[in-house]
């Protein structure tokens, strides 16, 4: 430590001061970031608590019949029951709902999404690259892509069932058709957005057309493709109920639909909440994966 600053040590003192100051600044910045995060968390929790409280109050005061809006406790019970076994009055033991635990329903849906979106993730960028780089192909296909994108899945699921049967194949197709356009469109936009100078730089370093595609356009487009995949996965979740309307058991969307028809409203709400949470969790995972794959995004 510096003891009694003399003139000679002036430089040293101010240096130490300076260092101390920048450490303080860094610590302050960390602290303010942390308080900000805590504040956000508190706000989110507060909103959740208020929403639950209102929900509970409305049901506790019996303002709405339980058939229309069951209490939070009832929904929680439906959630627990759908994941466990219980004995009925008749002495029979049933496990879960519709012969499957809820998590099995969820996994069945996720598998369908994985297949449908998975194929879209493989084909989407490929078609996107081809359309972006071959002018006539783009002219030929773009209207159909926009047409497909505008169609409501509920509208053509019946047709897919006629074509591919009531089993999983028609569901895969539906999810694929929902996920495919956003990925293709994101890829096309990504390729179009590649800066001309990036391509010129590679060409003047001796890159062939193929090398430009492989070493410049492909990585430069990656952020957009990942963005497209996130949109596609989100869209697939919104489509999964439509996909599982018919013969959708096991399936979380199917369970939501069937339980609603059987007036098990609490279970329907539990399903909806699970679908929402699963979608949010998956999106967070994809977002994280995105920052790992394209750490330069937004910084270069």
């Amino acid at each position: 430590m510096v003891t009694g600053p003399t003139q000679d040590e002036g430089g040293l003192v101010s240096q130490a001061d300076h260092l101390g100051q920048s450490l303080r600044v860094a610590a302050d910045a960390r602290r303010s970031r942390r308080t900000q995060r805590v504040r956000k968390l508190v706000l989110s929790l507060a909103v959740l608590v208020v929403a639950l409280a209102v929900w509970w109050l409305v049901t506790a005061l019996e303002l709405v019949q339980p058939l229309y809006l069951p209490s939070p406790a009832a929904v929680w019970q439906a959630f627990v029951e759908s994941n466990t076994c219980r004995e009925l009055e008749s002495g029979r033991t049933v496990c879960g709902e519709q012969n499957y635990y809820m998590w099995e329903h969820l996994i069945a849906s996720m598998q369908r999404i994985a297949v449908g979106v998975g194929v879209a993730i493989v084909l989407g960028p490929l078609v996107g690259f081809l359309m972006a780089s071959i002018g006539w192909l783009n002219t030929a296909l773009e209207p159909y892509l926009n047409f497909l994108r505008a169609l409501p899945p509920l509208g053509y699921i019946g047709l897919l069932i006629v074509w591919f049967g009531i089993g999983n194949t028609s569901k895969y197709w539906l999810l694929f058709l929902a996920a495919f356009p956003p990925i293709v469109i994101a890829t096309i936009n990504g390729v179009r957005g590649v800066r001309e100078d990036s391509i010129h730089a590679a060409r003047s370093m001796g890159a062939s057309q193929w090398q430009v595609g492989r070493h410049v356009i492909l990585p430069a487009t990656l952020p957009e493709v990942i963005g497209g995949i996130r949109i596609a996965v989100g869209f697939a979740w919104t489509t999964v109920v439509a996909a599982e309307l018919n013969a959708g058991i096991p399936g979380i969307g199917g369970l939501a639909y069937v339980s609603g028809q059987q007036l098990q409203t609490a279970l329907t709400i539990a399903c909806i909440i699970v679908i929402g949470l699963a979608a949010v969790a998956l999106d967070a995972l994809l977002k994280h994966l995105g920052t790992l794959l394209v750490p330069w995004y937004g910084r270069a």
Binding site: D197, A201, S204, M205, G206, H215, W296, A300
Partner: peptide, 29 residues
């Protein structure tokens, strides 16, 4: 052609490659 190298006003480096990989890229091509 690689025989006419171009230095742009903006550095135009490829952010998915390290500095070294950027510099070696022409030779790789």
């Amino acid at each position: 052609s690689w025989e006419r190298g171009v230095v742009f006003q903006q550095a135009n480096l490829y952010p998915w490659l390290t500095v070294r990989k950027n510099v070696e890229l022409g030779l790789k091509f």
